[in-house]
Design a binder for these strands. Structure first.
Lengths: 120, 120
DNA sequence: ATTTAACTTGGTAATTTTTGACAAATATAA
DNA sequence: TTATATTTGTCAAAAATTACCAAGTTAAAT
């Protein structure tokens, strides 16, 4: 990575998943209570989501996409990338993990993976 | 992706985390019972790991690296990449997630992330 | 075919983690 | 202030993970 890029990374705030949700919610003129209701959560729960204190499973993700009228693939990307990055950080894992993960994901998609084998 | 690459992906078996562990175990001339004992597992547990039926947390990962005399970073990479790929597949998430995840991971590393904020 | 060792699989109980709901505390705005 | 919005902590229920055990299968050898 170039020095410029590295500097930018250290200075520019990266939008977290919570920031992303909050931004879209505010753009839509909703408060936490209103949006939370649409996804079966109370305002406290949504607050925690927006502040990265977690909570949220896939069905909520889909409801959120619908409520905010955003692309499901996009919100999944935002959500999972955050989870992955946190895991990588937590485990102190080299970032090369992501390249390998992408290869594996493509491989899973290319073969018709047996659900039993992978238990999902 | 080129047709050649795609063909290769569909034909070549990609080594899973379980395959990786099994290969190293066999290379060292250990059976499941022996290796399992070194990481505080029974043979059934190790069998499940090798067959992708999961089990395994970080401390076992470190023990495994030690028992198999392999680089800790390497085993973490193998382990996490598999988890990430499975999640991506399960969520039907676009593979662009990995590029974003890598950016986020680099960002987390570049700022001195507050543990409280991210709760890890 | 029988024996033996290695491996796989399923069940289950114990533990840990995640979740949603509530309430209190804090902040923001009118 | 008063009202509204957000944050935070706690708690119990629900879900997921884990270790452990035992039964079942496979494979190799003789």
């Amino acid at each position: 990575m170039s020095k410029i890029t590295k500097l930018n990374l250290t200075r520019l705030k990266m939008e977290s998943f919570g920031d992303y949700i909050r931004r879209l919610r505010v753009e839509k003129g909703l408060n936490q209570t209103e949006l939370a209701a649409k996804i079966g959560l109370d305002s406290g729960g949504l607050s925690k989501v927006e502040n990265g204190k977690k909570e949220l499973k896939e069905n909520k993700l889909l409801l959120l996409a619908k409520a905010l009228k955003i692309d499901v693939a996009d919100i999944k990307k935002q959500y999972l990338s955050e989870k992955f990055a946190e895991d990588c950080f937590k485990y102190k894992c080299p970032e090369a993990v992501f390249q390998l993960a992408e290869e594996k994901a493509k491989y899973y998609k290319s073969v018709n993976i047996k659900q039993s084998k992978l238990k999902f």
